[in-house]
């Protein structure tokens, strides 16, 4: 079959681009304080916080949304 245009055959391959290098501030999450509200998981633009609330620093761009949206201030932004 001839294909017109460009085809990318590896789903999710942007994962090869580690955007963690963009970061100047790093979110540090304190699981002791966490009340399991899921805000950080829902609002992260990178989808790099899972439901155990582990942050994948390979991709976190340090936007600070998670810290801002945490109702109990369990996430602090620290300079890299």
């Amino acid at each position: 079959m001839t294909s017109i245009g460009a085809t990318v055959k590896e789903p999710g391959s942007s994962k090869h681009n580690k955007t963690g290098s963009w970061r100047t501030f790093k979110p540090i999450l304190d699981k002791e304080k966490c009340i399991d509200c899921e805000n950080c998981f829902l609002f992260c633009p990178e989808g790099c916080i899972n439901k155990e609330y582990d942050i994948d620093y390979d991709y976190c761009k340090g936007c600070g949304i998670c810290a801002e949206e945490c109702p109990v201030k369990a996430i602090k932004m620290e300079r890299e």
């Binding site: 789903p11 999710g12 391959s13 942007s14 994962k15 090869h16 681009n17 580690k18 955007t19 963009w22 970061r23 633009p45 990178e46 989808g47 790099c48 994948d56 390979d58 991709y59 761009k61 340090g62 936007c63 600070g64 949304i65």
Partner: peptide, 10 residues
């Protein structure tokens, strides 16, 4: 939607 995309931080 995989990470590594080029969207602005935030």
């Amino acid at each position: 939607l995989a990470p590594g995309h080029r969207g602005c931080a935030g």
